[in-house]
Nucleic acid binder design. Structure first.
Length: 535
RNA sequence: GCGCCCGUAGUGAAACGGAUAUCAUAACUGCCUUCGAAGCAGUCGUUGGGGGUUCGAAUCCCUCCGGGCGCACCA
């Protein structure tokens, strides 16, 4: 982590608590890395940025990490790292192979991440499919940083929506056996549930076994299994599936209600029990936890679930939800106080829904109306790599519009192909040259052209990208970096050769190619896309 | 009405208060007798409007305009 080394060096010679960053410089004209720390410091110390920058440089200049350090534009400090540093980093890649990029920052630390937790009454649709790759990549990035990660999913298998599901399934069943029946009010439209009933009829040999209860149970399991299959196709597997029904049957929901009451965070109003966090919390954070009919609401189980999360001894708890749940967030945050959990160690990350258009017409994602495009359809249409890469290319806060009509034709324009093609090219060279082993005769100094050196610089950025993702949860850096690395390699490929070069250069370049393959493989694994042999 | 999020080249996006706002794609012009042209080189083109904060604003604040979402004894 060259960036981090520089960061630490600077940090040690400036007053503690000064916020600053070291930036990778793509073009190199402002150095390989740079920092604007002198500006911030100048303000504090009431000196000119240039003088502050000079003071910093004087201490750093001796370090053999650098080839050159300069001050520019009145206070920016630009660092050029030495070739030796780059060759060392390249060796590190070749030695560490599939562990290159990993760090130990999360050693002995545990985090749990809840993501997807899809509506159990129908297929995962493209609107919330974004949470899958997002959560999964985040989980992987944490693993790369040495954390022990628990991937979890809440299955909302009780409540009014399940009753509606049952009623709708029953409607289709009656229809299939020729009984006169009306579509239930508030039932789920669309053909999907009819398919579920068809599957149920195949399974139940005896008609007497079919009741609204058995049908509901069958439907829930069937839909859940299908959703898990789709997630598996996207490379997503959970360690823990928490069922709301289990929270209730085990008494945990009731226990959570009791504790909340005892903590004085409830009030009775018109026969119902309300969650009323005290202190600075606003009124709109109030919510019913026990209805006047005595039944707990979903939120009661959510209190139980989060109580469990907070008391499980984990260092960090992350929830990833679609932005339509944002009203829920303050209530959950209020729970950290209730259960004495460090509120900084609980993060709720929201992503905006993906909108789908057909031409200029926006398709509303409604399970109730049956108008949605499923994640599975999109997977079939554009393929896993394309879909994941697209969904991970933008910050979770951006509102993505997918144009269904354009998606297929456009799939070939996806940068994922640009990226994978670079990998295939590298792989193709490697296949021709065979494998070489790094030894004392290897002289990497023959990697000396601008293209050689930039490629190494770019490869060396990889661990810093991983680290940055962990710090701010912005995993879309990964796809960004992938296209940048691909670009660096395509450029190299165009201008330089491996096979046919002078023996010494040839030898050194083989190792460079090998390093490119290693970094792409590690990167693709974290993003969740394949490493194709050919395209 | 109140609250949360978003407006960046034709299109999709990046930029944690920093330097000449990047990247991909589209369009146009070139480049296949040497490791794969799904590539490379070049051209074209961008911060919704208006105020403010400061050495410096796409980024922070105010306001207007446009879009998404949420404001249940649903989950």
């Amino acid at each position: 982590m060259i960036k981090e080394e520089i960061f630490e060096l600077v940090k040690n010679i400036i007053p503690a608590g000064t916020p600053f960053d070291v930036e990778f410089q793509e073009e190199g004209k402002f150095g390989h890395y740079s920092t604007s720390v002198a500006f911030a410091l100048a303000k504090k110390e009431k000196k000119s940025p240039e003088i502050v920058a000079k003071e910093i440089i004087e201490t750093l200049q001796k370090n053999e990490l650098f080839e050159k350090i300069e001050i520019a534009a009145g206070g920016f400090i630009n660092f050029w790292v030495s070739k030796k540093t780059l060759y060392e980093e390249l060796k590190d890649i070749l030695e560490r192979k599939n562990t290159y990029g990993q760090n130990e920052k999360g050693r002995e630390k545990k985090i749990r991440i809840e993501y997807v937790s899809a509506n159990p009454t129908g297929p995962i649709h493209i609107g919330n499919a974004r949470g899958g790759p997002y959560g999964e990549s985040l989980a992987r990035v944490y693993e790369e940083s040495g954390y022990e990660v628990l991937r979890e999913y809440l299955h909302n298998d009780v409540g009014g929506q399940i009753e509606k599901l049952g009623e709708t399934l029953w409607y289709w069943y009656e229809k299939k056996v020729g009984r006169e029946t009306a579509f239930p009010e508030g039932g789920y439209q669309g053909e999907y549930l009819e398919e579920v009933v068809t599957a149920a009829l195949k399974k139940f040999k005896n008609k007497e076994d079919i009741t609204i209860q058995t049908l509901t149970k069958f439907g829930l399991d069937y839909i859940f299994e299908n959703n898990m299959n789709v997630l598996r196709r996207m490379g997503i597997l959970f360690d823990l599936i928490r069922k709301e029904s289990e929270l209730i049957s085990s008494g945990k929901t009731q226990e959570a209600i009791d504790v909340t009451k005892r903590m004085g965070a409830t009030k009775e109003h018109e026969g119902a029990l309300w969650f009323v966090p005290r202190d600075e919390f606003l009124e709109d954070r109030e919510a019913v936890i026990v209805k006047s009919n005595g039944k707990p609401t979903y939120f009661a189980s959510d209190i139980a679930y989060h109580k469990e999360k907070f008391e499980s001894g984990y260092d960090l708890v992350i929830d990833i939800f679609g932005s339509n749940h944002h009203g829920h967030v303050p209530k959950l945050q209020a729970l950290t106080k209730l259960f004495h959990f460090d509120s900084d160690a609980f993060k709720v990350l929201l992503y905006q829904f993906v909108r789908v258009k057909r031409g200029s017409e926006v398709i509303k994602m409604s399970k109730r109306a049956g108008t949605y495009v499923t994640a599975e359809e999109l997977l079939d249409e554009v393929g896993k790599d394309n879909m994941i890469f697209s969904l991970l290319s933008s910050a979770p806060t951006t509102h993505i519009d997918f144009d269904l009509d354009a998606v297929k034709q456009k799939s070939m324009q996806n940068p994922v192909y640009y990226t994978q093609y670079a990998y295939v090219r590298a792989k193709s060279i490697g296949a021709k040259t065979g494998v070489f082993v790094l030894n004392s005769d290897t002289n990497l100094e023959f990697l000396s052209t601008d293209e050689d050196l930039f490629l190494i610089r770019k490869l060396a950025q990889f661990p810093d990208i991983i680290d940055a993702c962990v710090n701010d949860f912005e995993v879309h850096r990964l796809t960004r970096y992938a296209t940048e690395l691909a670009r660096a390699f395509h450029n190299f490929y165009e201008k330089e050769r491996v096979i046919g070069e002078d023996e010494k250069v040839f030898q050194a370049r083989i190792f460079l190619i090998e390093a490119v393959k290693i970094v792409f493989e590690n990167l693709f694994r974290i993003i969740g896309i394949s490493t194709p042999e050919s395209m």
